[in-house]
């Protein structure tokens, strides 16, 4: 029962989403499905990183307006870790850029062969 806190639950969700996404990435044959699996993998990794910075019972890393809190240096004892959040913030935006780029490639590949089955793209095979 002592393992059932929000940090452990989100850690488990993150790991399982990574596994599902990775499995889809390896087994799917349709290019769009591969990109969908990639976005699920991306979401899982982001949940994992944020959950590593979570501390039970602490609030968001925004300093209150009250000056007492600042002068007593209570901020340290009342917020969750802000560093993983800052990293994930940029990771999500880059993930969007990468997804859009992959979809542009997928559109170009579809224009070339009129199919999205990855087994049909065997030009480099001999």
């Amino acid at each position: 029962m002592e393992q059932l806190d929000l940090g452990h639950i989100s850690l488990a969700i993150g790991f399982l989403l990574i596994l599902i996404g990775f499995w889809g990435l390896l087994t799917q044959k349709n290019i769009i499905k591969i990109i969908v699996a990639f976005t699920i993998l991306d979401t899982g990794i982001n949940i994992l990183i944020v959950s590593l910075g979570y501390i039970v019972g602490k609030t968001a890393p925004i300093v209150d307006n009250s000056v007492e809190q600042l002068e007593n240096h209570n901020v340290v004892n009342s917020i969750v870790d802000p560093v993983p959040q800052a990293l994930v913030l940029t990771a999500i935006v880059i993930g969007f850029g990468v997804t859009a780029l992959m979809l542009a490639y997928a559109m170009k590949l579809f224009n070339a062969k009129k199919t999205l089955e990855i087994n049909k793209f065997n030009d480099l095979k001999w």
Partner: peptide, 9 residues
Amino acid sequence: YLLMAAPDV
């Protein structure tokens, strides 16, 4: 993320 006190994310 909101539950994990990360409103920005």
